[in-house]
Design a protein around this nucleic acid. Structure first.
Lengths: 216, 216
DNA sequence: CTGTAACCTGACCATACGGTCAGAAAATGA
DNA sequence: TCATTTTCTGACCGTATGGTCAGGTTACAG
């Protein structure tokens, strides 16, 4: 999504190109290192090595370790939020919630590092995204809870507590990223195959959709 | 349990008393600090302050930060394992799995720090308890999966994938500890009340038990 | 009381870390 | 070409951290 013509239109485009590419590389490396070592365990040197850049260069683009971390967490949060666009357009809980579970599991599969960074951030008391939790996430959650409640009122699903249903979906889907190492260990040390991921999606949806009486 | 027999028999009681009490205090402080700051973010000084002891005293009981951390993680693992004793004795899934969910939610409530340390350890690749995962946890898991499969075969519940059912239970119950801060934020910044915890248990059990066709 | 083992701790050390900076190099524009 | 802006980086610095240790204190057996 960031590909454009190799020929810069003007000077400005070229400059931002270098900057954007380097920031991308750094953020990608940082996401991985923060996920694997935690904020405290991560070092700028490690991130620099993984990005293939001198440490001082990182500080050229990101003033402090906190700044870099903050940016990583923000990026993840954005991905998270967009996962539930399917939620609203769906008319039926089986479809809406089913698609949401699929989307979230797909994120766990594609962005396991991001998921871990997010989990770590929240576990440590959300020092850098507390305001997001209190505003964006809270609003988002209330919106979805209302949507679920509407389905309940319309008799399209059993009268479950919408909040705890959401938590269960979050917990279960993110578990496959956050506890991926444990899951891999219990899978003979091998990552889940394409086929096994499909089995995950089917199992999770089967239990939850039946559990809320939305067998569609 | 690794000490030689040079300890005077009569003096033993008193001396081990001091040792045991101090180790307890240190481990308790360590669990909290490791949970809140992660292994890398935790400092021996912080743990010492929280325990009300000089830092050097910590090193008298635990040679290194890693040793202390290892002990904390091991303790948590023990608690975890004993949570499912109810599992085996139960005759039907509604009772067995229901009790297991209750037990695990109760652990999340009583030992949120331990849960976070465990989650953090696994998220970072289980550097110190990998052997436990490969032996004890794997055996344990296979035993429970077999028990669930037996229920399925006996027609006492729907034919769900036992592994993913277990993962869902783990994920959901531990979520209330690991993401407790987020849950609290979404609860107007207040911890869950006694009443709300009951609501959690009821909701989780309702969805999962209906989801696996074990309405007992 | 005395001797000894266990317990305690202030002061210290080596290292690793986040961050800085001066100045080189490269890109761009005129 | 030259001037200007942006990018890059080796060398360096102050601090915090894990860990050590010598020597003190306490508990208690004899």
């Amino acid at each position: 999504m960031n590909e454009n013509a190799r020929i810069p239109r003007n000077a400005k485009a070229k400059r931002t190109e270098i900057r954007r590419e380097n920031e991308r590389v750094i953020l990608e490396a940082a996401e991985k290192v923060f996920a694997e070592a935690g904020f405290g365990g991560a070092t700028m040197q490690l991130i620099a090595d993984m990005a293939g850049l001198p440490k001082a260069n990182l500080h050229y683009y990101f003033a402090t370790k906190e700044d870099l971390y903050r940016q990583v967490v923000r990026n993840i949060f954005e991905i998270w939020l967009h996962a539930a666009d399917t939620f609203d357009t769906a008319a039926d809980p089986a479809e809406g919630i089913g698609a949401y579970i699929d989307a979230k599991l797909e994120i766990s599969r594609r962005h396991p590092f991001g998921s871990k960074v997010w989990a770590s951030e929240v576990m440590h008391g959300a020092p850098v995204i507390q305001d997001y939790l209190e505003t964006t996430l809270r609003d988002w959650t209330e919106g979805r809870m209302a949507a679920i409640q509407r389905w309940v009122d319309e008799g399209k699903m059993a009268p479950v507590n919408p909040r705890h249903l959401l938590y269960m979906i979050w917990a279960t889907t993110q578990h496959y990223a956050d506890f991926g190492h444990q899951i891999e260990t219990l899978n003979a040390g091998k990552p889940l195959s394409e086929r096994q991921w499909r089995e995950v999606k089917d199992s999770v949806k089967a239990i939850i959709l039946r559990g809320i009486g939305a067998t569609g």
